[in-house]
Amino acid sequence: MIDRSFIGHVFDPFTVEVEKGRIRFFARTIGETNPVFTDEVAAHAAGYASLPLPPTQLFCLEMDGPDPFLFFNRLGLDFARLLHGEQSFAHKRVVCAGERLTFTQKVADIYDKKNGALEFVLRETSVDDEAGRRVADLKSTLVIRNG
């Protein structure tokens, strides 16, 4: 069982630089056809400061911290039994390459179903820009199969 005393725990914030190369690699991997995500000329023509971040890539940058799997390791989450249950993003504005974002992760809840056969970890992550303004809120529901 996951230690319930982690409920409410806030991890040390970490800062990630949004890199053009990472955006292009991500966009090409998912077959993105809108050129604003891969071609800076197209991005500038559309009014963006640089390549804009595709809608789900904030989740990926959350694993670009100094210890990518810190959250999983601290809670003792085993990848062999881990599934992603739900994911949500509330976007306040679009992020572009060249920005530095600070991620703060919180264990919002831990609970179980089916007499502990399934455990759920609700993680809430806030993402702020260099001025300290919120750019997005992420929620992840992680599922551990104990059965």
Binding site: I30, P52, A90, H91
Partner: peptide
């Protein structure tokens, strides 16, 4: 996400959620 950005500017996206 690609389905959305092929049909609307990414600046229009306010919220996006899924259940797996």
């Amino acid at each position: 996400g690609r389905l959305l950005t092929a049909n609307a500017p990414v600046t229009a996206l306010r919220a996006f959620s899924t259940r797996f």
